[in-house]
Design a protein around this nucleic acid. Sequence first.
DNA 1: TAGATTGTTAATCGATTAACAATC
DNA 2: TAGATTGTTAATCGATTAACAATC
Lengths: 211, 211
Amino acid sequence: MEARDISRAVIERLPRYYRYLGELKDAGTERISSKELSALMKVTASQIRQDLNHFGGFGQQGYGYNVSYLYEEIAKILGLDRKHNLILIGAGHLGQALANYANFERRGFEIKGIFDIDKDIQGKKIRGITVQPMEEIGNLMRDKNVDIAVLTIPKAEALKVAKELSSYGIKAIWNFAHVDLDVPDDIVVENVHLSESLMRLSYNLSNQVEV
Amino acid sequence: MEARDISRAVIERLPRYYRYLGELKDAGTERISSKELSALMKVTASQIRQDLNHFGGFGQQGYGYNVSYLYEEIAKILGLDRKHNLILIGAGHLGQALANYANFERRGFEIKGIFDIDKDIQGKKIRGITVQPMEEIGNLMRDKNVDIAVLTIPKAEALKVAKELSSYGIKAIWNFAHVDLDVPDDIVVENVHLSESLMRLSYNLSNQVEV
DNA sequence: TAGATTGTTAATCGATTAACAATC
DNA sequence: TAGATTGTTAATCGATTAACAATC
């Protein structure tokens, strides 16, 4: 996989291509042209071809793209061809929602540990995994090969835990806390700020574009 | 509020400004210059000034910006100065996580109804609101003044329900289903595709930028 | 071969950054 | 008044779209 200096915009679009190709594949479609896909996805055919060609020539002139092949190639680009071990920190509703989301495991993301500060939740099982106290994070990180931590805890906690995780050599953090984590640049941080998403909705609702 | 043709990029940044200003306000900071804010937020001062000036001149030469004033102004731009009634469709873990997230109510988003297809959940109370069967959506939409629907249901369901909501005159949909809803253009759709977020994390992990 | 469609270069469009006059 | 910092225009940079030669 080459792929340095690919623009953020392109990367943001890749998962959507992947989703559409998966659906086409499931529907039994064998080939698709950039033009057909563009009609389906409501983007320009030019953009699709440009985006894909950042990673290689996956199509064939006069034919288009083979759906399964392209699907698999995008999976590789996205790193979905490997297994990733993750831990979940914060076993509240949001944490449980993520833990129970089966698709993540299907895509190679396996939960190796769940942690919570609340003693009442500790010891309970979620998807067969016993919730442990936060103090155990270090031990588990040492035992298992964990690269991703999912933070579904309040922001003050998140800042502390992120620092701790960073000292254990975590590689990536999926951050649901409403705060920008301050971790070294070599740790990948993917933020999901739900309240900001709701504010964008609110903006668009208030400044509704007349059609 | 003016604000037509403001670029998507600007709107995406507004909630983050709002968050930082809220924190500054809580910390008792009275004024801040674009330069100081830029250091804090790790964006250029130029961008901050450009972004804000799409909506008006909120600062003062030689002084900077008054934190509380700017905070309130951005709230207005984002439409956070009004109340919005919303309904939650899908009372699984994700739905419950959102229902229990107190901050939404503090910002004027009030849950008027919760619906689920599962008979075992119907009748139960979440945050004091009784979960109703899906068939009741229409009635509630007619009684209360609901403008936002939150969809935390599987994608096949989501497509159907979105159509139904659209016929009841819903104004905005906060969509957590992994599908692009096909609704008229005058309905605001804000998507939260968690699996796509995880894929971006995966991409960045696999194609880690060396520092 | 003719038609279709890619991969890729060039043109356009838009967003970000820099610069600076206006002004508090 | 001098210093600071905005609001805004101009310059730069990057992303998107259009065009088309290559080729299946």
